[in-house]
């Protein structure tokens, strides 16, 4: 185990970005409707280990650049085994002369993603995006990024965006066991380049700290200077635990959620996540146009109100 992998307290030296910022508690403003549906070409498609694939798509030049935490809907050309497009987090944005290249880390788990896995270089995919609200990376504080499994990919994208703001991150990465730390080598390489610090945890102790990312967080957090901000992506039970941790410690915490989706654009109302009691009360009182397309006090839509939510916004008892 390398020194870098060990949970290690930070020694300061952080340069929090001097960006005018909304308060951490305020949700980011509604994303402007800028999505498009465009045909993309597969430029790279390879195995990423731990049962995952890495996919790169060349987009037309005019395609709006997604931010970290945003997603797109990938639609296979007919004949496809599935009807609806599949939501996928953007894990990489690379500018190129011909147009941006988008990268995705995904697991072939069902009919749609297995069909995706069969694509060859130069095959076509329809991409709808960028969709949703990404991580509010303007929120001040030492960035603590917490990834579970394939959640690592959008958070690496976030880490790179933070680096451009001159902010280095603490990157916590957990999985069942060493074999499930997907794309670990690449994660380490990219974090090294950015000067981010990688901390690992596995449930069985085969790599990094023996335990969950939450235990890792408990160890590291006391050594980080305030203010801190958490951005997390991974399985819902993990996110629920992190959300509770953030609420308990009054650390602004943002979680990238998932839901089964149809449209991805807010029209079908098919991707509800239960709002927290406090949020429900706040929205029930509101009279002016609400920050949500439909102002539903009971449910937020994952696709347009999220997929990234502040910890206080959702009802973790019903989600964890």
């Amino acid at each position: 185990m390398s020194r870098r992998e060990r949970a290690r307290p930070a020694r300061g030296g952080y340069r929090p970005a001097r960006i005018p910022v909304a308060t951490a508690a305020a949700p980011p403003a509604l994303a402007k409707t800028a999505w498009r549906q465009a045909e993309a070409r597969v430029t790279l498609h390879r195995d990423a280990g731990a049962g995952h694939r890495w996919l790169e798509l060349a987009m037309p030049r005019a395609f709006p650049l997604p931010g970290a935490g945003q997603f797109v809907q990938l639609l296979l050309e007919a004949p496809a085994p599935v009807l609806l497009p599949r939501p996928m987090s953007v894990a990489l944005v690379r500018r190129a002369a011909a147009g941006p290249v988008l990268g995705f880390l995904y697991a072939p788990v069902g009919d749609g993603t297995r069909a995706l896995a069969a694509l060859d270089v130069d095959d076509r995919v329809l991409v709808l995006g960028p969709l949703g609200r990404g991580f509010p990376l303007e929120v001040e504080g030492v960035p603590v990024l917490i990834a579970g499994g394939r959640g690592v990919a959008p958070l690496l994208f976030a880490a790179e965006t933070l680096e451009r703001q001159g902010r280095r991150c603490e990157f916590l990465f957990g999985a069942r066991d060493a074999a499930h730390l997907v794309a670990l080598a690449e994660t380490r390489r990219r974090l090294d380049r950015m000067g981010g610090r990688l901390h690992l945890a596995t449930d069985d102790g085969s790599r990094g700290v023996h335990g969950t990312v939450l235990e890792l967080l408990d160890r590291i957090a006391p050594h980080l200077p305030a203010p801190r901000v958490i951005h997390a992506c991974g399985p819902h039970p993990m996110l629920a635990a992190i959300a509770r941790w953030g609420l308990r410690h009054s650390v602004p915490t943002f979680l990238a959620m998932e839901s089964i989706m149809a449209c991805g654009t807010g029209v079908c109302r098919g991707c509800p996540l239960p709002r927290s009691e406090s949020e429900r009360r706040r929205l029930s009182r509101a009279r002016a146009p609400l920050p949500s397309l439909y102002g539903n006090p009971e449910f937020a839509m994952c696709c347009t109100d999220g997929p990234v939510f502040a910890a206080h916004a959702l009802d973790w008892e019903r989600l964890g």
Partner: peptide, 8 residues
Amino acid sequence: AGNPPARI
């Protein structure tokens, strides 16, 4: 408010 998840 609509029905509880899953809706699709």
